[in-house]
Design a protein around this nucleic acid. Sequence first.
DNA 1: ACTGTCATAATTGTTCAACAATACACTTAG
DNA 2: CTAAGTGTATTGTTGAACAATTATGACAGT
Lengths: 226, 226
Amino acid sequence: MSAETDLSPILPSGLVPSLAEQTAARLRESILSGEIGPGERLSEARLAATLAVSRNTLREVFRLLTREGLLHHEPNRGVFVATPSMASILDIFRVRRMIEVPALAQAWPRHEGIARMRTAVERAEALAGVADWRAVGTENIAFHNAIVALTDSPRLIAFHRQIAVELRLTFGLLDSPEMLHAPYIALNREIVDRAGAGDTAGAAVLLGHYLDQSERTIMAAFARLA
Amino acid sequence: MSAETDLSPILPSGLVPSLAEQTAARLRESILSGEIGPGERLSEARLAATLAVSRNTLREVFRLLTREGLLHHEPNRGVFVATPSMASILDIFRVRRMIEVPALAQAWPRHEGIARMRTAVERAEALAGVADWRAVGTENIAFHNAIVALTDSPRLIAFHRQIAVELRLTFGLLDSPEMLHAPYIALNREIVDRAGAGDTAGAAVLLGHYLDQSERTIMAAFARLA
DNA sequence: ACTGTCATAATTGTTCAACAATACACTTAG
DNA sequence: CTAAGTGTATTGTTGAACAATTATGACAGT
């Protein structure tokens, strides 16, 4: 996974990540890849043995991922993989609109984030050519991370990364990633072209449309599950 | 501390909070009350003894408060109370503008959050009468929490609560809370009156002015420290 | 068969003690 | 005065133990 698409929190500069953080990263990927399904209960003893860490360390990991929204902790009953709901999807898109659209609208057209957006689009175009839709989804997330990076706000960036992780959890539930991601590559291309040309306001409008459409698509796919 | 001004994260519904969460709450208040100063190092062994919990439990607490932004973890060196900087203040106000202003602008005038805003203002007015400026500051934070509550977005509310905690950490550094809070009571009153009367757009404009002024005041007080 | 009660087993919550790994302070050699 | 090296304190991690809570299942009564 490339640096631009890494969804794990920023680590203390240049130092070896602790075992707890490494383990958190592993467990996060296990969850996001669908290896562990939403609602599933994570037994401390069993998972500690599987991951080859102590129960104490695993409990620290649980605390981290619970704060991230990936796990859900019920006292004296255990931790469970969070189960996305329609309410959470609606909330996530509401937050995304509130953050991404102004971020793009007020962007400086030569900010490095624009380059990151362009890279993500180009990669997505290439990956769509070979029908690797899961990777297309990853690049799509990178595209939107780059939009928020335009703000240079550490807090907004961290918050948005967390939201993106939650959304990826939802994607794991849905099938047909082609339908979920393919239609938006061209739109992303137009957004970044406009932003790069200085028309950030126009790009922001398009981004709003993107979010509306994407929300509808995901909600529809999600509703088909229930 | 009343329910409206409680800055601790939402606990699992109706259940006994774990020792780690209780301890996190205690440590959070120790930090925010200034009992432990910014930059100070927290020794695991010593603090565990002081709080009468095991090192393992305390480490879980550290992970919670680190994710909250109150502590700073340097691997193999220990955890330190976070030290606010000018950059963090600028970032916090940027985020607040981005969240609070639209939250108020799009508010439903009969949302319960409006009532919470009004309560906070009335309490602040009363407390200003007896010159309890620290409590005025607490009510001021409750006022802005209520604004974000107007969105009914769990994620925005949680994010804003976290930001508010970080800002309280900054307040702890500054003296003269009267100067920091007193001038804004009347402005808050006007904001809630307008919003309650249905002029949420006008209220949002005033809120923007509030944030500009407040940021300048805090930055000036902070600059006087260095 | 259905349901409620109660003992029993399994799991989480928390502590403690130990040791390894890292960083800090200090001494000593050049 | 700097540099290298040694010793010590602190963090990182583990495993075992026990208390507290919840889940399981047998059993009795209807």
